[in-house]
């Protein structure tokens, strides 16, 4: 029993110590952001690696999620003779929820894990220590560009996901199930609000981008510099990011759309 309590206390201390380290790390990274803006080449390279290379999975997922939503939504709505509202159902579901959340989860799995593994391996192979000894701050040179690229990429990927999801829904709803094309678009136009729906979705994706990238770069930088350590850090990135996205989604939804 005593051992259990001791273990719990030790775990608690470790958690808060890591949290403190992560916050200090984020602060140092933010301080390094202006240096990245002066050297846009570093940022562009990371935007390609983090954003552009994530496009295939985002495009595919967006289209299929939209198609499934349209199929499911049609089967429910048709019972009430409300199939013409399919466009609204698809758009609101994707713009408010599925766009930012699914993109956040996919982003964590594709880009987040890659960031952690890359930075972790740089640490394990002494590349970060080598930079320090060359008087180059690895947080400014390696971390800050990746952090900024993740923060910028995530809302753009979520927007692409949402647009393609809506077209996926259109393809199934209008193209295959015979929903009126005018009704699909016009109901969506009249019911989806720019501020309440679109902007709130963008805010969510910005928050998810910030948190997922922060977790990914911190886990890489803080990794135990062995193969096992890098593997564990990569796993932690995906797991913690998934928890963070889902938990924050509830909090943000409650704040934005709660009573």
């Amino acid at each position: 029993m005593l051992d259990w309590i001791r273990g719990l206390g030790r775990g608690g201390f470790r958690f808060f110590e890591t949290l403190g380290r992560a916050n200090l790390f984020a602060l140092k990274t933010l301080v390094g952001i202006p240096a990245v803006l002066v050297r846009p080449r570093l940022l562009v390279a990371q935007l390609f690696s983090v954003g552009v290379l994530s496009l295939p999975i985002i495009i595919l997922s967006g289209v299929f999620v939209g198609m499934v939503l349209a199929l499911q939504g049609y089967n429910t709505l048709v019972d009430f003779g409300a199939e013409e509202s399919l466009g609204v159902v698809v758009a609101l579901s994707i713009v408010r929820e599925l766009g930012p959340v699914v993109t956040g989860l996919l982003f964590a799995g594709r880009a987040g894990s890659a960031l952690t593994a890359e930075i972790g391996l740089m640490k394990a192979t002494e590349q970060l220590a080598g930079m320090e000894m060359m008087a180059v701050d690895p947080i400014h040179r390696v971390i800050a560009p990746r952090f900024l690229a993740g923060f910028i990429s995530m809302p753009l990927l979520a927007a692409i996901f949402a647009a393609l999801g809506i077209y996926g829904g259109y393809f199934v709803g209008v193209g295959l199930l015979g929903v009126d094309e005018g009704a699909y678009w016009s109901q969506m136009q009249s019911q989806v609000d720019l501020y309440d729906d679109v902007y709130n979705g963008v805010i969510k994706s910005l928050v998810f981008g910030l948190v997922v990238t922060w977790i990914a770069v911190f886990e890489g930088y803080d990794t135990v510099p062995t193969s096992e350590g890098v593997s564990r850090s990569t796993t932690r990135t995906v797991v913690y990011s998934a928890f963070a996205v889902l938990g924050l989604d509830f909090v943000l939804t409650a704040l934005m759309f709660g009573a």
Partner: peptide, 10 residues
């Protein structure tokens, strides 16, 4: 400093 692994940027 010359690191044991070389520490070249990969």
């Amino acid at each position: 400093m010359l690191f044991q692994s070389g520490a070249l940027l990969t």
